Amino acid sequence: MMMAVTRNQPVIGLDGFRNGWVAVAIDGAGCAISFPADISTALAAPFTRAAIDIPIGMTDDGERACDKLARDKLAPHRSRVFTGARRWLWEDHTDPDEANIEASRRGQTRASRQLWHLGRKIMEVDAFVRAHRDCDIREAHPELVFLRLNGAPLPSKKTEQGAKLRRDLLVAAGFVEIDDWVTRARLGTGAKPDDLLDACAVALAARDCAGCVPEGEAPRDAHGVAMQVWF
């Protein structure tokens, strides 16, 4: 559903970090940043659309068309898209090794440690989305947004060149406060500079929604949740 959002309607972009969420809100010509501890607090204020850098909608085997298409778009940097989220991983198991034994028994791909440790946030968002089906909450991927803004693949965000390029793209898109956010606002929160950059990128996806994978009507999982990545 490609609904237009006007520039004076509030949107929110969210990226997770170890202590909670980086929330970037755009409302009219202004934007603001906050660091809420949970998704309910992050989305407590009225919003027209929210975009979150987290898997939304999951299959039993962890295979999603949107992940494959997103990885293809980001080639040769396919590994920037995490795959394999499955509700049963975290609903049925508290130990990653046990979960992966079960994944192997089912003939499925094992979960990486990085994916496993995202489980709490994935399930937090899953519960919120399923309880608030009237809200426009979409999965977005910051690297797809940066690809759209740059017109070509970017170097790793962990490099000085990659971080600066992403920062410059965001300033050009209107985030003139980003240097202050990175050097001052985030201090003491536990959020890293790239967490802020990613939250800004998905906020742009919430406001502009230039495209998605797959295109057209979104496939839905067993709970009716859309599996589509926006940028």
Rank of each mutant, 00 (worst) to 15 (best):
T159C: 08
P153S: 08
Q9H: 05
M58Q: 12
A29M: 10
P55T: 07
R130K: 15
D67N: 05
R120M: 12
M123A: 03
I12F: 02
A203C: 11
V22Y: 00
P76D: 09
R133P: 02
K121W: 04
N100E: 12
A140M: 05
R106H: 10
K73S: 11
G13C: 07
A51G: 12
N100M: 12
H223K: 09
D134N: 13
V213M: 05
R113Q: 12
A51D: 03
K164S: 13
G30C: 11
E160H: 08
L69R: 09
E143S: 09
E124Y: 00
R105S: 10
H141R: 13
R133Q: 07
A29I: 02
V125H: 01
V24N: 00
D195I: 01
G16L: 04
E215S: 10
R207D: 02
I33Q: 02
K158G: 04
L118P: 01
T159G: 11
R110C: 08
R7N: 14
F146A: 03
V11Y: 05
A210S: 07
R87S: 07
P10L: 11
D195Q: 03
G211D: 15
T109S: 15
G30R: 14
D198K: 05
S40D: 10
D15H: 13
E91I: 02
D179P: 11
I26W: 06
P55G: 04
M58W: 14
L165V: 13
Q161A: 15
V24K: 01
F175Q: 02
F128Y: 15
R106L: 08
V145L: 05
K157M: 13
D194N: 05
E177V: 02
R86Y: 11
A203W: 03
T94D: 14
T189F: 06
Q228G: 01
R130A: 15
V5W: 12
E215C: 05
R7T: 14
A23Y: 03
L149Q: 09
I137E: 04
C31T: 03
T109D: 15
G84Q: 06
A199L: 07
L204K: 06
G20C: 12
T59C: 06
R186M: 14
P142G: 02
A111E: 00
A65F: 09
D208S: 08
F47G: 09
R184K: 12
D136R: 06
A103D: 00
R148D: 15
V145S: 00
A210E: 07
L43R: 03
D92Q: 14
A206D: 05
V81W: 00
R18P: 00
H141C: 04
T189C: 03
R130W: 04
A75Q: 06
T6S: 14
V202I: 08
R110W: 00
D53K: 07
I33Y: 02
A42N: 02
I122C: 03
H132P: 06
H77L: 10
I26M: 11
R7K: 13
A131E: 15
A111W: 01
A152E: 12
L89I: 11
E139I: 08
G13N: 00
A4D: 10
R78A: 15
W21S: 13
V213K: 02
S34K: 05
R186V: 04
G119H: 04
F17I: 07
C209N: 12
